[in-house]
Amino acid sequence: MSQSSVSLFAASRRKVDLLQRGLVMFAAFAIGIVIFYPFYWMVMASGLPEGSSLARTTVLIPGSIGLEAYAAVLLQKPMLQWTANTLLVTVLSTAFVTPLALLAAYSMSRFRFRGRMAMIFFVLLTQLLPATSVLIPLFLVFRAYGLLNNLLGVTIAYVTFLMPQTIWILWGYLKSIPGDFEESAMVDGCTRFGAFLRVTVPIAIPGIVAAGLFAFLESWNQYILAYALTSSTDKWVVSLGLYAFIGEYTVLVEQMMAASVMASIPALAVFVALQRYLRGGLALGGLKG
């Protein structure tokens, strides 16, 4: 290939690059609109005056933006109580599960012992099971022990799906950390557990935070377990409160959307605060075997 044809090639490449970039930007913009339109619509509908969404369809420009629906939800529904319940259950279950899962994941990632494969198999298997498939036994046991309509019961129910998931994420992460650091610490006189606490845990912080974040968001998402296990509205988590709007939604679209905005804020806030851990923390080695 001669010199001139190389430079011609480079010039046409630059043109193609520019064109490609322009196309990608246009496509990204279009896709961005499709992806974010539902959020836009939620916020716009939540700002409409009571009952007005029935009168006309809100596609783009709202007539007015107000906080009427928010005030109505806060005054007429125990929204704050539901949010507090959700926070309590979510934080308790996450805080309970994460350290135990960390110990188990450490054991699975560093030791070869009898029953290890069975454990790995079981942990993956339980993640495939719908929450509804353990509802009957949980319901019966909780009824026998007075845990129905009880936030402690809801917390325990959340642990059933959080524990396998958290072990799985942490196992994947710990596998990606070489054991050499711990071994050096042990050569220097640390006990095995001491090496784990002083060497492995600090290195694994991004993974631990990511697993905790997943657990938090999963709990915040939960709906059917709480639905089947609680009956009185003062024990509801926020997703149950949202679901109740379905029954009255033809008259209360604005309130339903206002409540949706309020229910999203805590989850989004936690997510935004911790999301820098997400990329590094999700080694996902676990899934690669």
Binding site: F39, M42, W220, S239, M256
Partner: peptide, 8 residues
């Protein structure tokens, strides 16, 4: 949250 997604 799943339920918010679903409701919207």
């Amino acid at each position: 949250p799943w339920l918010v997604t679903t409701l919207i």
